[in-house]
Design a binder for these strands. Structure first.
Lengths: 193, 193
DNA sequence: ACTAAGATGTTCGAAAACCAACGCACTGTT
DNA sequence: AACAGTGCGTTGGTTTTCGAACATCTTAGT
């Protein structure tokens, strides 16, 4: 039931080729022939794995989205406490291996496949759920605050993807101030923390 | 007549695996199973390409030796002039792609396969030929001077392999002084240069 | 409107790689 | 001496990949 090693290898090669090509060309400009040439796979093999280059992109985005979703869901509860976001720091640690891939895919914005947008959506959903359970009634509109929290975190994530995780320390104070301000809208009792 | 892409890929994978393993273990400690596991190739495929791990090492050494030999032979005549060794600088430029591989293989010293020793031997042969044609009669023993020249160059090569090519500039003066002293033994007429 | 070039997606026989299994040799227990 | 453990090298049937060919489809040039 487990996959043949050859399948794993060709999919790895094809996806690596796609990522490398994306550093040079636009997704639209990339041809299936380009991918095959760089990955040393034959045309027919490519189509044995993917319907077309859109399907390929789709599966890549789906893969990283799944990982992200799992990690977010696991860690979301730890978010409130801790300096900067324990969540964000944890996520970046979890995805250290895939950082290059994610950074590259973040530059691709196709209607069918958009990793950045997907991450944003997943994060927003968790925020909404979080607010609903923690503070059912709020003075400020819940959706607004959820959007705020999401955007703050996304900003940190993207910044760390570009500049490296360690660089988080540089902006920790600034981000913390903002984070606390957002959380204050949800849990006013946290003032004295 | 040209090789199937699949052969190229598996040989590439196997050789990369060998190099990566050599950064961790001794050549003796490495097993065929290790290589197969890391390169994602099956045991039977390995033996379809190589007799055993010694044969693999052998072919890798042979490959880089061939390249080295060609480059040395092409460039040896340009050696005398130019600051530091035009030869050495040229060689390092030619082999920039393979620098990591060569640096790793230089740490392996098996009686049947020793890249460092092979490079040394090839270089020495060129020096002997050079002296024979340029200065058939010399006061100092030709073999001694050939050995000197070879060792000076090998030292620079190994130093550059470790520290990067640009770092040659740092030691250029020192090496040049020595190089000139060696060449003076061959061509006393160069005093005034 | 015609053509040439390049890209897509499919088909099929041949070549290569996989994998599970086997026998063998060597080493270190108990 | 029997034993398990590990590494070597080989075998044969199965699966995957390759390569070359083919029929579209789009796009640019004359």
């Amino acid at each position: 039931m487990t996959k043949d090693v050859r399948k794993i290898k060709t999919e790895r090669d094809i996806q690596q080729a796609m990522l490398r090509l994306l550093t040079t060309k636009t997704f639209r400009q990339i041809t299936v022939a380009d991918i095959c040439q760089l990955s040393l796979t034959s045309r027919s093999t490519f189509y044995a794995h993917y319907l077309d280059k859109y399907d390929l992109l789709d599966k890549m985005v789906a893969y990283y989205s799944t990982i992200f979703n799992e990690k977010v869901h696991d860690r979301f509860n730890q978010m409130i406490d801790g300096e900067i976001d324990a969540l964000v720091r944890g996520l970046l640690a979890d995805m250290a291996d895939n950082r290059d891939a994610i950074r590259i895919l973040f530059t691709v914005h196709e209607p069918e496949a958009d990793l950045e947008a997907t991450f944003h959506r997943l994060l927003l959903k968790e925020w909404q759920q979080f607010i609903k359970s923690e503070a059912p009634t709020m003075t400020a509109p819940a959706d607004l605050i959820a959007a705020m929290g999401t955007n703050v975190q996304m900003t940190v994530i993207e910044w760390a993807l570009q500049h490296g995780e360690t660089s988080i320390d540089v902006v920790a104070d600034a981000v913390n101030t903002i984070r606390k301000a957002v959380l204050l809208q949800i849990k006013p009792t946290m003032k004295n923390k």
